[in-house]
Structures are given as C-alpha cells and as structure tokens.
Simulated assay, not measured.
Amino acid sequence: MNGKGQESGAGGDLTTDLSALDFAAVSPEEFARIVKGLSARQLGEVMHGNLRTRVLGEVFGRMRQQFRPEAAGDLTALIRWKITGESEEVYETAIAGGACEVTRGRSAGEPRTTLVMGDAEFLKLVSGNGNPVTMFMTRKLKVAGDVGLASGLTRYFDIPKA
C-alpha cells in the first residue's frame, strides 16, 4: 500500500490530488479524461470551496477559445448557465457577431436560454462525457427558454473527447 486511500470511501485523496493540479496547464482532452474517470459522486466531492471556483473559472475561461464562430454564423444569443451544488454559480455566454464573451454572474440581459444542472452534470456536459439529450430527458439538465438553441449548443464549441 502506498499510504493513500486510508480514509474511508473511494476518492478520499481525490480532492487533495486535484487541488494540486494546475488547471490552466491541463488540456481540454486531459480534462475530459479526468472527468470520464470519476463517478458522479466523486465529481460532486471535487466541486467544493476553492477547487470548485477554480474548476468553473477554468472551464468558462476556455469557452471563448473553444468557440467555433463558423458554426455560429450570425447567431445572437445570451445563454445563462446555473450550476447548482454547494451554492448556485451563474455564468453567461453571449454569442454575437461571430464572437463569444463569457461573464461570471447574472447580467440585466434577458437570456435566450437558461441551462440549470448540478456540478457533476456540468462537468460531464462540458467535457464531452455526458449526453445532453439524455440529461434533459432524465431531468438532470433543465432548460428554460429556447430548447432548440440549447439542444444545438454543442456544435458551437469544440468539445473535447476523452
């Protein structure tokens, strides 16, 4: 035994291991592999406190680079993301003029669609490890507003593959 895993429950050292990660240095593909290797319970365990803030900040921070303007064409839309868990975090993605801007918090703008999901579901969705239609049908992903826009969001971003 290497001294790890002495806490009861799987993933006892998981938060410690991931908190040491420099998320800025992790490629989207590597992030997708990390998420794929964790259970929903483990993903939930990871998403607490400062580590949750860092993970959400990094994921939303990369959306601009992952955006595919050629796929979005002349789309203009404000997408509000509500990530539930230990607290509700709100981010917004504004797509207009072939550009994507991401902001933390709720703006005064009226979103065309709002996506509400838990931490684990969010990580699975943005890492390409979750099927948005299945998540919607099983009520793990709630959509308010333009469901058609929500169902096509993945084509506007380069989603990593694990």
Rank of each mutant, 00 (worst) to 15 (best):
L78Q: 03
G105Q: 06
L56M: 15
E58S: 12
L38T: 01
R112A: 04
T113P: 02
T113Q: 07
V90Y: 05
R64K: 15
R41N: 13
E88D: 12
G118V: 02
Y91K: 08
V59E: 11
V116D: 07
H48E: 11
D119T: 08
R64Y: 05
F60V: 08
A71T: 12
I83Y: 09
F60G: 03
A108C: 04
G85L: 07
G85D: 12
V116T: 09
V102Q: 11
R52Y: 13
M63P: 05
M117S: 04
Y91T: 07
T53D: 15
A96Q: 09
L78P: 00
K124R: 14
Y91C: 05
A120Y: 01
V102N: 11
P69M: 13
T53I: 15
K124E: 10
L75M: 06
G109W: 00
K82R: 14
T113W: 06
F122C: 09
S87A: 15
S87T: 14
E92K: 09
G37Y: 04
L51Y: 08
G85H: 04
V46I: 11
H48I: 10
T53M: 15
A94R: 09
R64L: 07
I79E: 00
V55Q: 02
Y91M: 08
N50T: 12
A77E: 02
H48G: 02
T114Y: 02
A108F: 03
K82G: 11
T84R: 02
L78K: 00
S39W: 06
K36W: 00
R80K: 13
L51V: 10
T103E: 03
T114S: 07
L75K: 01
R52I: 13
E89W: 13
H48C: 05
R54M: 15
V116L: 08
T84D: 12
T84S: 08
E70P: 04
R106Y: 09
G49D: 11
